[in-house]
Design a protein around this nucleic acid. Structure first.
Lengths: 128, 128
DNA sequence: TCAACCAGTTACCTTTTAGTAACCTGCTAA
DNA sequence: TTAGCAGGTTACTAAAAGGTAACTGGTTGA
């Protein structure tokens, strides 16, 4: 991430330390940046939540999406899945220690995003 | 984002303050979470960069992607585009004050992501 | 017996995303 | 005059994402 462009001795502009394929930010985004992923993880921050409750909390995401994202987060060791022997059985998802290390990022994002000016107050596009 | 699930007086579980459609985290992700978006913005943090130089720095992203993401960031008031009267003309992209407010998030993400354990050291998937 | 809840899965389809490669105008240097 | 640079645009294609709706199998309560 210290990429810069310099002029080489033959006058050509070349990048030094260019980001090859996905750099750290890109990789991070691919872990917690998927649709609903961050939101789901964030909702686990205060303790374990059951599958259907999570689906109720994260409005707009289908059960299929919830399932997919939970698996993704589990695969990355950010949450753990636990079957509770109630009847009918319930399944709880709990954030791991590692998963918790991402919460501060998400919390900053949330705060930032809540203060994003709405579309109308933004600068206009360049005209050409 | 204070969503929780409670049991109503008729015994049904209902979500209170559920996230309707995209919550703050979701919205934030849709601004800086797109593929290459965060990476591109981050590369502008130390001063204006020209289009082709940016393309050189962000390896893996095509010119088309760079263009799209720059327009997206511009539309959200995070960068500004400036044509410099050199010859041939060059175009510089510069981060705005508002754009800078996202850098700390990206920087945290970068640091976090650099410390993400690799796939081999992670917990195994549940077996069923 | 019927309905509802649990935690998903499956099939299907549409939309979006992202990539490649060629192309464009205007300019300059060899 | 030809190549190369600048900053893109366009057309085409492949792949991934994401949504709906129906369905599963077991459990419980009215």
């Amino acid at each position: 991430m210290r990429a810069k462009v310099i002029e080489s001795e033959n006058g050509r502009r070349v990048a030094v330390e260019a980001c090859t394929e996905p750099c750290a930010i890109e990789r991070g985004m691919r872990i917690i940046g998927g649709k609903w992923t961050g939101s789901i993880l964030y909702h686990l921050k205060d303790g374990p939540v059951r599958f259907n409750d999570l689906a109720r909390m994260v409005g707009g995401a289908s059960k299929k999406m919830i399932t997919e994202r939970l698996r993704h987060l589990e695969d990355h060791g950010m949450i753990k899945r636990e079957v509770v022997a109630t009847s009918p059985v319930s399944v709880e998802y709990e954030i791991t220690d590692f998963g918790s290390t991402a919460i501060c990022i998400l919390d900053e994002l949330r705060q930032w995003s809540e203060n994003v000016p709405t579309e109308r107050t933004q600068q206009k596009r360049r005209t050409g």
